[in-house]
Structure formats: C-alpha cells, structure tokens
Amino acid sequence: MKPYIREKSTFTFDEIPEETCFEAGYLVTVNSGWRSVTPYVDADRCIGCSQCYLYCPDGVISMDGKVPVLDYDFCKGCGICSKICPRQAIEMR
C-alpha cells in the first residue's frame, strides 16, 4: 500500500470538501517530468542488498524478492540509489 494516482483530479464546487480534510494518499500528478537522468538496474550485478530501496528519498524502489523494481512515475532521478549501490549495479543514463 502507498499513495497512488487517482483518476479524478478536478473537483466541482460540491466535491470540494467543506473542511480541510480529505482521503489520505490521494495523488493526481506524477514526478517523472523532473528527471533529467534515469536509473537502470543491472540485474546481473545486483546482489539484492536493498540499500537502494532503503535510501531512496522518494520511496520509488521496492524489492521484488531480491530484485529492485523502480516506479518511474515518481523517480526524480537524484541518483542516490546509484551512488549507494555497493556493486555499481545502478547506472544513471
């Protein structure tokens, strides 16, 4: 579970809440446009240590077993994952 993109992104007068209180984790825009470089995982080099998953400020890396999976919708391309990787298995391109 994590905040995720919803289909409904605009709201009519009646749909705008009366109070400043709304469903948690409601996303309407992605962050992929911020990226100038993109991380790619070399599965052969990766040892599944999870350091990239742990240190990603945006939480866009999840571990599918021992393999890191990136959510490119929300990756900003900071490159912390690439730098933290002990096996140089993440390349920024």
């Binding site: 009366e18 209180c21 709304f22 469903e23 948690a24 984790g25 409601y26």
Partner: peptide, 11 residues
Amino acid sequence: NRFDFDHPTNM
C-alpha cells in the same frame, strides 16, 4: 473532519 485509522485522512 478528523483522523481515522480505518480510513486515514490528510488534514
């Protein structure tokens, strides 16, 4: 207009 652990809110 409150927190709810079953249906969390951002306020």
